[in-house]
Design a protein around this nucleic acid. Structure first.
Lengths: 102, 102
DNA sequence: ATAATATTCTACCAAGCGGTTGAATATTAC
DNA sequence: GTAATATTCAACCGCTTGGTAGAATATTAT
């Protein structure tokens, strides 16, 4: 699950797609027109995002409307949180305080 | 840069390696012994993590000691933060409050 | 019914991935 | 020096990826 999510957002085009979807629902065509690759290329990226649960699709006639689903990103952020202590500089100060004599 | 970081942590073995490294410096061999794949397989994963800036290596004689570098994870977490509002349930309540009549 | 529109499906390509094996290199131990 | 240890490097395998092009499907417009 984290595999799919991190794998999905490891690609800059897909991160950009999520950025567009953050402004609201968009259909595949209008989304595709904003990227310098083919329609089919964008269509494949969307499928990767769907597989990761980051995008859902609402078919209405011949149009497919896409919507951002942020829940999987929350799980991804939670995993990263386990490492927050390691980049938090305040910890260095705390450590220096706790073990002053090595 | 985010490409490399997210790509690196998209693999469960590499996430596990980071987990081990969170407990302190470890040399390649002792790390490799903890995984059900070959030494060389682990060695390649380490290289991916190094390329992402998540691991640094201190060569001491014939031993290579590995250390976690969490800074790139901070950048990754920051990007995810842009989407926090979308999974934060409090927003739903706020939205309901702001536009009570659709 | 025909044509235009919106989209997927299939097939292809070159490149990369996760994994293996076998050889090479460098350091330490005897 | 020779042998053991710790590690990389190079080559390979099957599978996936990001991208393309072309054909097929479904819906709407005329």
């Amino acid at each position: 699950m984290l595999d799919q999510v991190y794998g999905a957002i490891a690609d800059p085009t897909r991160r950009a797609i999520l950025g567009v979807l953050a402004d609201g629902e968009v259909k595949v065509g209008t989304l595709a027109r904003r990227f310098p690759i083919t329609f089919n290329g964008v269509s494949k990226h969307i499928k990767v995002l769907e597989r990761a649960g980051l995008v859902t699709r609402r078919v209405r006639g011949r149009e497919h409307w896409l919507r951002l689903q942020a829940a999987p990103l929350r799980a991804a952020a939670r995993w990263l949180d386990h490492y927050r202590e390691f980049w938090d500089t305040r910890l260095d100060a705390l450590e220096a305080l706790l073990k002053p004599r090595p």
